[in-house]
Design a protein around this nucleic acid. Structure first.
Length: 685
DNA sequence: CTAGGGTTAG
């Protein structure tokens, strides 16, 4: 009999380790059949533990309630509580704890770590302190496990003083204590302190664990310390943790964040037992390094490898789709999310809102937003960013007003201000924008970062206040970035401030010598002003340094294939249809009052040639093709690798009006949505 | 028979 009982206990344990509710229930059935009721208490405890760990709480509670009150022990209750915590039911865990006290059972050194963890997950400071008091009263706080979890709780709640005194007063520290200490130093943003703790730990010469390495790679990733991380990686290999999947996942994340995506991939390829976290980390690493296509390809590999499309990997790949404006892929992932029932997850939903916004699809973006069961600041920021991105400044600003009013239960953060300033910039709302910028520090205590400064430069520049923008750059507390000088150069080009443009361009040439775009802008700027000599000098410089201007091209996706066009392209198999469409459009457009805008076209051509030059830009050819093959009522989406030109911008307004079609062009800067002789961004700019 | 510290995302 006792051997049967032991066998059952072992089976229940293996049900937990294999997370198999089938084994668990089958064993329960076997117990009912083979063992006399009432069962020995320790077997009932095993049952409670099994059901609780496998997240079958109701059964666990049922078993517990059938144990005679005198036999219900702290072990029974702790089994129930620990399962609730491990499955993320923190409120239930606390209520089980209070039921335990009502049952006249006192917690032990196993119970406290569970409930401290529940408190810190719930950010329940008051309950946490009460529990701490109880642990002191019961004399359990000196236990190394209890002390460690109490320290961790205070640290994660941000109660630094309490955490520190907990740590100092601990009579005993073990590896877990140090792991918790390092991990909390990372959370505090003190990566140097975290790494110092690790070095100290190594010097003490004790054992390290996989968790130690996980937290240390976190520290290296957070501190962007590629050199140190590489050293620790070497140490990991020597220490024999190289094939531990959790450690490897941490290493992938670390290399990804430190922008060494190739090393991340090497580690990924070496893992023999990849799990969903490995795939997700690698997808995220590609995404964070602007390799959106590789991220998508890897995601599809993951799906083929039978990785479940869970919330984490779905939201990672969605941001990759957003980054490359891959609407088709984004829709496919959306469908997978619905099928896997994760589209209601707040991370996934926010990523979907963001993806649709960045793909220029504001209706789906808003619809997704409206349908979300739960929203948080990130969700609101995604929608706000969408409005800013698509030039709907009025919507962006009114949303921001709502956020400020507190009605939405969210407080604007760093990202919120980037979007709202971008929206002001596009709307030309300099006054509003500047007062929002000032309110960041004064009212919200957020120190403006380089993105905010860049928005202000852009805002002033667009509004024609280029001198003021230049003054603003000069007075900034931190060194100007490429995007600030780029915004200033762009503004100088449009507003004809050639000398200041030259200053901005020279800065850009120093910072980013291989970029052809800035040279082209400067050269065209001089050309537009009739300063041919200087324009030529810039072109010659480009040749000297060996910079090639990348070929401009536009592409359009029809059904499952992508059609790419260059300027003057006649190579497409439907070329005759395209040319006929272009000719028809041209005459209709002229009749409607279209005049070619050649101000910023290549300078060394006669006017007639310049007209012909702009007429054969790749985006117009792609659009003509789209008009031939995309049925009426379906928006035509075109992507261009460079900035759309001034003439194409006005030409497409005419074409949208004449054909009654909605046309969306994404260039390397932003979206332009054309409808009824109009564009979502009022100016070309 | 019950426990702590860790890896992925918007």
């Amino acid at each position: 009999m006792s051997s049967t009982i032991n066998t059952m206990a072992t089976l229940l344990q293996s049900a937990i380790s294999s997370r198999s509710s089938i084994i668990g229930r089958a064993t329960h059935a076997a117990i009912i059949k083979n063992i006399d009721y009432p069962y020995p208490t320790f077997l009932s405890n095993h049952l409670v533990n099994m059901y609780s760990k496998l997240d079958l709480t109701q059964q666990a509670q049922l078993i517990l309630s059938h144990i005679p009150p005198l036999n219900r022990s702290v072990v029974t209750w702790t089994s129930l509580i620990s399962g609730s915590v491990q499955n993320g039911h923190f409120v239930s865990a606390i209520s089980h704890f209070s039921n335990m006290l009502k049952d006249n059972v006192l917690p032990n050194d196993f119970t406290f770590p569970c409930v401290f963890k529940a408190c810190n997950s719930l950010r329940c400071v008051v309950t946490g302190r009460q529990l701490h008091g109880l642990a002191v009263k019961l004399g359990l706080i000196r236990d190394v496990y209890v002390g460690c979890s109490a320290f961790d709780m205070y640290a994660k709640m941000g109660l630094r003083d309490e955490a520190n005194s907990m740590f100092e007063e601990m009579p005993e520290k073990n590896l877990a204590t140090w792991n918790a200490w390092i991990s909390n130093a990372v959370i505090e943003g003190k990566c140097g302190k975290a790494v110092g703790g690790f070095v100290e730990l190594m010097r003490m010469g004790g054992e390290l664990s996989q968790i130690t390495f996980c937290v240390v790679f976190n520290a290296c990733a957070d501190g962007l310390d590629l050199k140190l991380g590489r050293q620790v990686h070497g140490f990991v290999v020597r220490y024999g943790y190289g094939c531990n999947v959790s450690v490897a996942n941490g290493i992938i994340d670390f290399y990804g964040k430190c922008r060494d995506v190739n090393s991340a991939r090497l580690v990924f390829d070496e893992i023999c037992d990849r799990n969903d976290v490995s795939w997700c980390s690698m997808v995220a690493a590609y995404e964070q390094n602007d390799e959106g296509e590789k991220a998508c390809v890897l995601f599809l590999d993951a799906m083929r490898s039978s990785i479940e499309p869970k919330d984490f990997i779905i939201s990672s790949v969605l941001s990759a789709c957003a980054g490359i404006a891959g609407l088709e892929m984004g829709r496919l992932v959306h469908a997978l999310a619905v099928k896997a029932c994760v589209d209601g997850n707040v991370f996934v939903g926010s990523a979907l809102v963001d993806m649709y916004a960045k793909c220029g699809n504001i209706e789906d973006c808003e619809r997704m937003f409206d349908e979300m069961p739960e929203r948080n600041l990130i969700t609101w920021n995604a929608l706000l960013g969408g409005y800013a991105h698509l030039g709907q400044a009025d919507m962006a600003l009114s949303l921001f007003e709502e956020m400020k009013s507190g009605k939405l239960q969210v407080v604007p953060n760093y990202v919120t201000f980037v979007s709202v300033l971008a929206a002001c910039s596009r709307a030309g709302a300099v006054k509003v924008g500047m007062s929002i910028f000032d309110s960041m520090r004064s009212r919200y205590g957020i120190e403006p970062g380089h993105e905010h400064y860049a928005c202000v430069v852009d805002m002033l520049g667009r509004a024609g206040m280029v001198e003021r923008a230049y003054e603003f750059i000069k007075r900034m507390p931190s060194p100007p970035t490429v995007s600030m000088w780029g915004a200033l150069l762009g503004a100088c080009k449009v507003h004809g401030h050639n000398n200041l443009g030259k200053i901005a361009a020279d800065k850009l040439f120093q910072m980013d010598p291989q970029d052809s775009g800035n040279h082209v802008i400067l050269s065209n700027m001089f050309a537009a002003a009739g300063r041919w000599e200087e324009a030529n000098v810039v072109r010659m410089d480009m040749k000297d340094v060996g910079i090639k201007k990348g070929a401009g091209c536009s592409w359009i996706s029809v059904k499952n294939s992508v059609h790419t066009f260059q300027a003057k392209d006649t190579s497409h198999e439907r070329n005759s249809d395209i040319q006929a469409m272009l000719a028809k459009l041209k005459s209709q457009m002229k009749a409607a009052g279209y005049i070619a805008n050649t101000r910023l076209a290549l300078f060394d051509l006669e006017e007639e040639e310049r007209e012909s030059e702009v007429w054969h830009h790749s985006e117009k050819i792609a659009l003509a093709f789209g008009l031939c093959v995309i049925p009426p009522g379906v928006p035509i989406r075109i992507t261009k690798n460079l900035r759309i030109c001034l003439d194409c911008h006005s030409a497409i307004k005419f074409i949208s009006g004449i054909t009654g079609r909605e046309i969306i062009v994404r260039d390397n800067n932003r979206f332009h949505r054309f409808k009824d002789f109009d564009c979502s961004c009022k100016d070309y700019w």
